[in-house]
């Protein structure tokens, strides 16, 4: 079994919230994440880029009903890292 690990990429407040949001569903559209986090397009793009570079999220652009939509999802690696990060936080507070 993989050990719980503190992940500095995920721990940044906005990125942690992005991962938490993505963990509740299969995929979310960029605009939904933006509304939930109440941040600008550029701020969200910057954080998603960091997560994408770490292979934690996957961004897919699709045209649906003549509208360009960007779908964001956690990769298996990202989902695992997020879970391990939460486990490490629980370990720190002495829950596990």
């Amino acid at each position: 079994m993989t050990k719980a690990t503190f992940d500095t990429i995920i721990h940044a407040p906005n990125r942690l919230q992005i991962c938490a949001l993505l963990d509740t569903t299969k995929e979310l559209e960029f605009q939904i994440i933006k509304q939930q986090l109440e941040v600008s397009d550029s701020v969200l793009s910057k954080h998603l880029k960091v997560l994408e570079d770490a292979s934690y999220v996957q961004l897919i652009k699709k045209t649906e009903f003549t509208r360009q939509r960007t779908w964001v999802s956690l990769t298996p690696k990202g989902r695992r890292s997020f879970k391990l990060h939460l486990e490490e936080l629980k370990r720190i507070i002495g829950e596990t």
Partner: peptide, 12 residues
């Protein structure tokens, strides 16, 4: 990515 870091119990 996974560098060791410590944070306080309260922060966690």
């Amino acid at each position: 990515n996974n560098e060791k870091q410590t944070i306080s119990k309260e922060e966690a």
